[in-house]
Design a protein around this nucleic acid. Sequence first.
DNA 1: CATGAATGAGCCTTCATTCAT
DNA 2: TATGAATGAAGGCTCATTCAT
Lengths: 242, 242, 242, 242
Amino acid sequence: MATLSRKQREIRDRERLILDVARRLLLDKGYLGLSMDRIAAEIEYSKGTVYQHFRCKEDLLTALAIQTKLKRVELFERAVTFDGRPRERMTAIGAADEIFARRYPDYIATEEVLYVQSIACKASESNQEAMQAVDGRCVAAVCGTIKGGIEAGDLEIPPPRQASEIAFGIWGMTFGSRIVGKTPTCMDQLGITDATTSLRRMQQAYLDGWNWRPLSHEWDYDSTRDRILGEVFADERAAITV
Amino acid sequence: MATLSRKQREIRDRERLILDVARRLLLDKGYLGLSMDRIAAEIEYSKGTVYQHFRCKEDLLTALAIQTKLKRVELFERAVTFDGRPRERMTAIGAADEIFARRYPDYIATEEVLYVQSIACKASESNQEAMQAVDGRCVAAVCGTIKGGIEAGDLEIPPPRQASEIAFGIWGMTFGSRIVGKTPTCMDQLGITDATTSLRRMQQAYLDGWNWRPLSHEWDYDSTRDRILGEVFADERAAITV
Amino acid sequence: MATLSRKQREIRDRERLILDVARRLLLDKGYLGLSMDRIAAEIEYSKGTVYQHFRCKEDLLTALAIQTKLKRVELFERAVTFDGRPRERMTAIGAADEIFARRYPDYIATEEVLYVQSIACKASESNQEAMQAVDGRCVAAVCGTIKGGIEAGDLEIPPPRQASEIAFGIWGMTFGSRIVGKTPTCMDQLGITDATTSLRRMQQAYLDGWNWRPLSHEWDYDSTRDRILGEVFADERAAITV
Amino acid sequence: MATLSRKQREIRDRERLILDVARRLLLDKGYLGLSMDRIAAEIEYSKGTVYQHFRCKEDLLTALAIQTKLKRVELFERAVTFDGRPRERMTAIGAADEIFARRYPDYIATEEVLYVQSIACKASESNQEAMQAVDGRCVAAVCGTIKGGIEAGDLEIPPPRQASEIAFGIWGMTFGSRIVGKTPTCMDQLGITDATTSLRRMQQAYLDGWNWRPLSHEWDYDSTRDRILGEVFADERAAITV
DNA sequence: CATGAATGAGCCTTCATTCAT
DNA sequence: TATGAATGAAGGCTCATTCAT
């Protein structure tokens, strides 16, 4: 059942090829430099063939976003397998995101571009659903970890606060500071040179602010991070310590 | 002297008109929906006239961004006049940003779109300088307040941490959560309905995390907020309590 | 094999159509009157279709110039097959050029316009190469004939003179007098009515000046010309004697 | 009577200024880079003012061409005052043209561009007449010298040849080889590096071809040229011997 | 299925000329 | 007389999408 016919495999491979090329174009030449013509020329198939895979440009872009989010969520889901206290697992998610950003800079760029444009609405229904699904997995990983912290008694969130608020803050801070961090004017004005390390400290401060124990002055999260990289992301370690 | 001739007034008014129309188009139809043709059609002047005001599309967009940032920085600079402890003034900046976002939703959208694109480089020199200047004022307001906290002994930031890191975090979190907050998928998944109120709490948690005293459980920042709205932003209060 | 599919034939025919229309526009309305829009309108295909044939305006114009030069060089290469003394073959080249100018007045005009503008640099590489190639053939035909004269002992060119100088002079005189000859003011002032016949005599005088034997008073080049028209350009004779 | 009012002088000066700027633009940026806007910006007068001097762009260009031709004809008229045999005076005209080309490369460029475009027809009547007049003076200088040669018995031109044919040939050769000489492709193919010196030899060969005595092997025209430069164009000598 | 020619609206920008002030 | 804002047609070019082969 799982075996695909030769034909089906060809189709799947070509779809990947298209997305790879599209992602590179998006990264290299920006949103306006990405055209169906150009994709077709680079994959050395015809435009018609591209349209057999994606009903329109937005559909293709949505597929790109899904692929991107899948890469990240896979790392997130590995992160939460880390054997440690909930806040350590939260730290692992942070590390996962950092690995994602370092290892797949083109994916990150994709995501940023696509967030701003309203793309998904024109995509095929199946892609819209896939998008929802992967977003759901991402939320589940993060919120699950937060709830773990509450259940373990490491963290309280009296109403009207919500567990998801913590997640929202981390998400916004991570996403936002990555965009701001790419605007040279802003960084020059601020005098920040290593945005990645700053982000790490900012995230820990944020979690401290919610009083998620053990707080960062009570626990050596740098060591935790080393353990995470060794135990969960050994294969990716090289990428991140460069 | 300070009085402009009728002609000059007409020109200045038309420049405003162009920017207003451009902003609306940007908001309604996104970056790609904004074209010089469309602007000309909407203002019912000729294309050539638009080009007499802005040397190219990027120049116009940069003018738009400057206008946006000016609106915000004016509110920020009012915020930091608040008579209170530094962290209260920081809260005032948060309130200013919230007012900005509520009162000028179209301006916020402008900013988001323009952050991602690299626009400024093609703008006229005078506009590039104006952009730098307004960014500088914004950074000055925020970082000045943080330094005020340090000087008052309410906050320590042992190296390698920096004052500007606090600013970077607040900025990223605010900017990022506003974009994420507009992506319905994400918000549905998170189950957050009132992103603005959440952001307020997230910001306070973040400042608590840096141990900026008085912490939010030691001080009633909601009352502070009321005072801010009453004392500094009385004229804008209506906008924000809607 | 050599047969083209119907589609391919259609494309080739349309390319010709485009060039024909472009040439006519260039002739009728000058360089500034030739626009891609106008071409598209006249051939009753869309602009996009024109751009599928030529990547930009300069590429089209270069193709036009190549076509023109090819027409000429074909005549030149026929001319140098004339069975006679080298200077007679040189005369044959003159006749070929005259035939070219009479038979394809629009081609001549094309060439004149295109000489002045710097067009080729923006053309596609293949067209740039084609241009070089056809220029090379033209030079080869003329210089080969001159060298033939030297080898036959009919002509000496002591240094620092060069064989190519003779060619340069003939070329310049022919090209230049054709342009001047089209400026009515100049011709009125000079009182010359039949520029073509004058050019013929001027060329012979020039070759006499280099002492290329037999000189024009030693040999009846008018008869030679008749023989050339009969033997090499019989098919074109009608065009030239009109 | 010859004295102009201040106003009139201002107008005349501004006209010169406009033409100078226009010529420079034409040289630097080509025909398409020359716009009324740009001229107005550079002279720091308004567009309306430019239009007060020239009724349309073509009128301005025609004025430019007249100015160019005037520069040349002045040199020609000085050349024919040279005290020597007619063919020496012809050589002097050649030297005058060379001086013109070397000293005023921008004027030459102007002329080449304007020859090809059909400009004059849209010019004001007075400019059209001025154009005729200066062309007439140029023809008079050259043809007068040729007739001088005939009258002196140095040259015969049995019908159907005409005196003006000699002039036509020299003109065409000079003009044409200057354009061809600027097309790098052609010169590379021909292997000619010093087009100016080549042109000088080509012109002498041409006059020899008409059997205009003394022939170039009977007379040292290089010495004649030195004398011309010393006696008639002493002030310009520096320009040409660089 | 795959192809790629064809479409044509749309984009940004320039420019000669006019005319109210 | 001088100004320069306003015009709007025109220019070169791109691109998502369709459809006959």
